[in-house]
Nucleic acid binder design. Structure first.
Length: 907
RNA sequence: GGGCGCGUAGCUCAGUUGGUUAGAGCGCCUGCUUCACACGCAGGAGGUCACAGGUUCGAGUCCUGUCGCGCCCACCA
């Protein structure tokens, strides 16, 4: 009798769905796989039973540690399919390491996402007719925190549904007190080392977001524009110099005209004065070799306040900086008659005015590369302003060294090229933002002596003049500054905590290539600078999840696959395995919903295989069972074979997981479970269970393989494997010594050598006989249910009675075996039924197919023979290859012979 | 202007250090409601591995070039 045991999980589920899992009869499975019945239960149970807590105190010298931090999603975000993909790979890795007995930590958390969050709350305020300015800074900050408390946990609730085995007790937020302290500490250290500086430079200004942004946050778009040729009168003459520009509105801020020093056309103009059209300002002609004499007219207008090149030029030649466009994107008072106009409106009017005065001499179409704000898509205005910058070159040098020396490895490693390319050309990072939400820069300006003091805590007095009139810098830091500290700030840095000592450097980082520069490279640079060690030893860079047409998923395109919906529809496990199967080496994946369908089909297959096993256990009266070792406990051919298959699958899966080939690992398990275990092994076992002989040994083998398969699959499909494993353990006895969850059970490792004999190959012969017989039956259109007599001639290999019975059951044959002793193994199968002797019984399609197959075989045989007769080949090819060709040749010949016989029989 | 990647079955993609009739999933065709599963079972069709050269006993795999597609970086007005 089965021991009937009841266990009950919590009925409350995170998202509100109620699931009551009461397994009074653990071994009785519903006919159809319904993940909704148990996924919420296990998700909840895993959290409640705290089994994924990284127990730092358990660390010992001999214990291996595996740690990984989650790329913190924006606190404003909601789960999208890319998260599910990324988290599934991370979870597979984490569960694998945990099951291997390593001390494991997966640390979750969220990012405060400066601009994004500020905008969300501002929009909310706008709906109520309030601006943040009306509220004032501290009240606004309070409102954002309030928003965060209310809605910020949404994504984490959603992550729980993924089955991600994260340690929720260590959840972090980039603006937690601890992490904020880390930010200040890092800032002060960098400042003290001179790696952070403050100054007036040209930055990318977003008039919409009202803040400076870094180079990375701009996107470049090729846009059809114009190149306007404008002539500027040379003062005191009737001559002109013509310049070409794509931004005529900036001419109001021109403070020079530049030409190449060697350009003979303009040499006579060096030092001459030009009268700026529209405003009548006198500006000089300067010579600078930056000017390309072959482009346009060879003369350039210089607007130091509104163009990065001109900014440098202006500094070099001590030109005045005239700011004609303001932070709001409108023309300033310096723009004279155009003041207060929007910058693009001003452009229109200026063109019109120049046209009228005849100073616009030519307009040609021109493709310009427009810089836009990545967030608001507003056209960037290069503006000069006082900002804080981080010097990147010295940091980058150490980071590149860490990658070059192999202390950090990239998977796939061709991404390293991208990393180096960017690092080598890195420029200083503008880290200050004119926002209210974020880490306020720890600097205080003295109102009295205007000295700036950078400190961990607010100073009481100015160290310079002892004034108490200090005001904190109003700018906050770029969100990526705190993200860059994530792998160690989350573990307690700057304190020397047990967590930090145990889990840092982290083992692995899994992230998308889209934030390679934003995040990854900055973590490497800051990690090395702050801790003296790399933040992680390995980086796995994955591709993007795209829609079926390989388009990026976006709300505007309306092609977003919502992971919450598909997890509901197909089950989380089905989505996970579907995504993993698509996850080849860093390439993008085109996701169709039919992948999820086939994932669910696979889960259903596993479910029903379990159902078969459980039902037969009950029927056979199998109650007690203990997980066995890797040796086949029975002498049956199918047991020996399946243990061999299991060993091979185990070895491949472990190897593949070690090198982040998740798709390969998933594929191998899919094939093993479906096509080896279900299609062949269980089909034969059904017969054994019916026969009722030597049952205990059979069961021991079947359950050992089955339970190992569940464990192997667990990192990929945690829910269904937990559900089935729990039922198995609770439904049989002797589970006191078992771990409380499959995720704490040992991951199967590569076993000791199996099958010393050649019997595994005998099973392959058995399979071949069965498939041949099925083919013959199909070709002759035999009734699928009809059991027919057959003679099996075996040479060199005799099948035992139970093996013949298996062949008979799988191919619906009554077999008489004629056996001959020999060294070479051969067989032939003859089916005795009237249809086989009738003329033309072989269908025309089958006949065609066989003929075509024969032609191919003849070609393959000729090929092989040619090689085996070629002395050069024989002398150069390794003997392993020669042997395999000999073997294949024999196979081709046998197949050809069989085909010919079949064709002859059908005549 | 630099750099990277891709082009394999109708579609989406695998294909380990080069080993010889090239694989999977989905789709398609034929048959089957067989007492685990029609989210299934059995059988089958379908590819001169973008093209052209080269290296090699042997190339989907390595090299060169061509064509097509995608991505990243970049201050030429």
């Amino acid at each position: 009798m089965l021991r009937q045991e009841t266990y009950r999980g919590s009925t409350a589920f995170l998202a509100g769905a109620v699931s009551d899992v009461t397994l009074k009869f653990p071994m009785q499975l519903e006919k159809v796989y319904e993940p909704q019945r148990f996924e919420p239960h296990w998700a909840q149970w895993w959290i409640e039973s705290s089994i994924y807590h990284g127990n730092a105190s358990a660390a010992g010298a001999e214990k291996r540690v595996f740690s990984i931090v989650i790329p913190p999603p924006n606190v404003t975000g909601s789960l999208h399919i890319g998260h599910l993909f990324e988290h599934t790979m991370m979870d597979a890795a984490v569960r694998w390491h945990r099951m291997k007995g390593e001390l494991t930590l997966w640390l979750p958390g969220t990012d405060h996402a400066g601009i994004a969050t500020q905008m969300v709350v501002e929009r909310q305020l706008a709906a109520a007719g309030i601006t943040r300015q009306q509220l004032g800074r501290s009240e606004f900050e309070r409102r954002v925190w309030q928003w965060k408390e209310e809605y910020g946990g949404r994504i984490n609730t959603q992550i729980r549904r993924e089955g991600a085995s994260v340690d929720w007790s260590r959840e972090r937020f980039t603006m937690d007190p601890g992490l904020s302290r880390a930010v200040r500490e890092a800032f002060v250290r960098l400042w003290d080392k001179g790696l952070i500086y403050r100054g007036e430079y040209m930055v990318n200004w977003c008039p919409q977001c009202q803040t400076a942004i870094s180079d990375l946050e701009t996107i470049h778009e090729a846009t059809e524009g114009h190149l306007w040729h404008v002539r500027y009168p040379i003062t005191g003459t009737s001559q002109f110099i013509t310049v070409a520009t794509t931004r005529p509105e900036t001419m109001l801020g021109d403070t020079a005209i530049a030409v190449h020093p060697d350009d003979a056309r303009y040499r006579h103009l060096h030092g001459k004065s030009i009268t700026l059209p529209l405003l009548g300002r006198e500006i000089p002609v300067i010579a600078d070799s930056i000017v390309d004499p072959t482009f346009g007219t060879g003369a350039v207008k210089v607007t130091p306040a509104h163009d990065p090149n001109d900014f440098e030029l202006g500094k070099r030649h001590n030109l005045p900086f005239i700011k004609v466009i303001g932070e709001d994107g409108r023309m300033t008072a310096a723009a004279g008659p155009y003041a207060a106009l929007d910058r693009f409106e001003a452009r229109k009017r200026i063109i019109a005015a120049l046209e009228e005065s005849g100073e616009l001499v030519k307009t040609e179409p021109y493709t310009v590369s427009l810089s836009k704000c990545d967030r608001s898509k507003t056209i960037i205005e290069p503006l000069v302003s006082t900002q804080w910058f981080m010097r990147m070159k010295p940091l980058a040098a150490k980071a590149m060294d860490a990658v070059r020396s192999g202390r950090i490895r990239f998977v796939p490693n061709d991404r390293e090229a991208l990393f180096f390319q960017w690092m080598e050309n890195i420029r200083d990072w503008c880290i200050s933002r004119q926002l209210w939400w974020g880490h306020r820069i720890p600097a205080w300006h003295c109102k009295n002596c205007s000295r700036t003091t950078v400190a961990r805590k607010a100073p009481a007095t100015c160290p310079n003049c002892h004034s108490t009139e200090l005001e904190q810098e109003s700018d906050v830091l770029d969100t990526w500054f705190s993200s860059g500290l994530w792998p160690f700030s989350t573990l307690g840095w700057p304190d020397d905590t047990l967590d930090l000592r145990t889990f840092y450097p982290t083992s692995l980082l899994i992230t998308g290539f889209d934030i390679l520069f934003f995040w990854l490279s900055r973590m490497i640079m800051l990690g090395i600078e702050m801790t003296g060690d790399v933040p992680f030893r390995e980086v796995h860079i994955h591709g993007l999840v795209r829609d079926a047409d390989k388009q990026k998923m976006s709300k505007t395109r309306g092609n977003v696959i919502d992971p919450l919906i598909i997890m509901d529809r197909y089950g989380t496990d089905a989505c996970r395995i579907a995504l993993l199967l698509s996850a080849a080496a860093g390439s993008d994946i085109a996701l169709k919903e039919d992948r999820m369908e086939s994932g669910r089909a696979f889960a259903n297959k596993l479910w029903n295989a379990s159902r078969l096993i459980f039902m037969n256990m009950e029927r056979s009266g199998i109650a007690a069972w203990a997980p066995g070792n890797s040796q086949a406990p029975s002498d049956s051919l199918e047991d020996i074979w399946i243990f061999d298959r299991l060993a091979r699958a185990t070895s491949t899966v472990n190897r593949a997981l070690g090198i982040h080939r998740y798709h390969e690992a998933a594929q191998v398990l899919w094939d093993f479970i479906w096509h080896d275990f279900c299609d062949w092994y269980l089909e034969i076992k059904k017969l054994r269970f019916r026969e009722n002989s030597g049952l205990d040994a059979h069961w021991q083998a079947t359950l050992t393989v089955y339970e190992k398969a569940l464990r192997l699959l667990h990192p990929f499909m945690p829910f269904v494997t937990e559900e089935l494993w729990q039922r198995l353990i609770h439904g049989t006895t002797a589970n006191d010594s078992q771990p409380k969850s499959i995720s704490l059970a040992a991951y199967p490792s590569v076993p000791e050598p199996h099958d010393p004999t050649d019997r595994v190959n005998h099973f392959a012969v058995l399979q071949k006989i069965v498939t041949d017989a099925r083919e013959l039956r199909a070709d002759h259109k035999l009734d699928p249910k009809l059991v027919v007599n057959a003679t099996l001639k075996t040479i060199g290999l005799a099948f035992a009675d139970d093996e013949l019975a298996a062949i008979g059951a799988l191919a619906k044959l009554r077999i008489e075996q004629l056996h001959e002793k020999s060294d070479a193994v051969e067989f032939s199968l003859q089916i005795h039924t009237p249809q086989f002797s009738q003329n033309g019984a072989l269908s025309t399609e089958a006949r065609e197919r066989l003929k075509k197959d024969n032609a191919g075989l003849e070609r393959a045989i000729a090929n092989s023979e040619r090689q085996l007769n070629d002395p050069i080949f024989l002398s150069k090819a390794p003997s392993k290859v020669i042997d395999s060709i000999r073997e294949k040749l024999a196979g081709y010949r046998a197949q050809l012979e069989k085909n010919r016989r079949q064709l002859a029989d059908g005549e």
